[in-house]
Design a protein around this nucleic acid. Structure first.
Length: 194
DNA sequence: CGACCGATTGACT
DNA sequence: GTCAATCGGTCGG
């Protein structure tokens, strides 16, 4: 079953759970990197906190496209965040990847993060949505990218047990701060804010 | 066109 | 805990 086929069956909330434990692989000229998704948030069209709430614009158009592609956006004048588009085309559902656990290419990530040859916590590499994109060299050139293809690939793994997942409220919002649409792998060190 | 502000981070009190 | 950095998206006039 293709990535798109599997992800288009789910809404953002279901996919946020399903994507925990999946791996992201990034191939660049300076080397390959990979990591395991350990923290996600769900954003859907009827959610006032979602970029898609007020309808389709140039910026958020990836959210309205087919499942299995990326939605990368630029924010705060300096950061990129990576989403995975899910659900049927035309219906804006996406999962924000908030943290990954590095598995390969750690020194390239250090270099991309400006931490090469510096003393730092291992978790500082990828324990936040803009940290992981910086570590993996993900920017707007990878917006709307088919995540079944190089140079940025997503591979689903077996679903986790719900007893291994913590569900809580999302981070950084000014409204809907009470909706429990953030999910992370219990006790994982790379979670942005336990 | 001007003004406001954000799905963040890092430095600092 | 507070706050500046930094700029494109979005909306009001």
């Amino acid at each position: 079953m293709s990535l798109m086929t599997e992800l288009q069956e789910m809404n953002a909330e279901q996919a946020s759970l399903r994507l925990l434990g999946a791996t992201i692989t990034r191939e660049t000229g300076s080397g390959d990197m990979s990591g395991k998704i350990v923290e996600t948030e769900a954003y859907s069209q009827d959610d006032p906190s979602s970029h898609s709430y007020r309808g389709q614009t140039l910026r958020n158009s990836a959210m309205f496209g087919p499942a299995g592609r990326s939605y990368v956006y630029f924010t705060y004048g300096m950061h990129f965040c990576l989403n995975i588009v899910v659900g049927v085309e035309g219906r804006a559902e996406a999962v924000l990847v908030r943290a990954i656990e590095p598995m390969a290419g750690l020194n390239i990530m250090r270099q991309n993060r400006g931490l090469l040859n510096k003393q730092h916590d291992l978790t500082a590499l990828t324990n936040g949505p803009a940290k992981l994109t910086q570590a993996m060299g993900i920017d707007l050139s990878l917006n709307k990218h088919d995540l079944s293809l190089s140079p940025l690939r997503l591979e689903l793994k077996d679903p986790l047990l719900s007893s291994d997942i913590t569900r809580t409220t999302r981070i950084g919002l000014s409204k809907d701060t009470d909706k429990p649409l953030r999910f992370y792998i219990k006790d994982n060190k790379w979670v942005s804010r336990p």
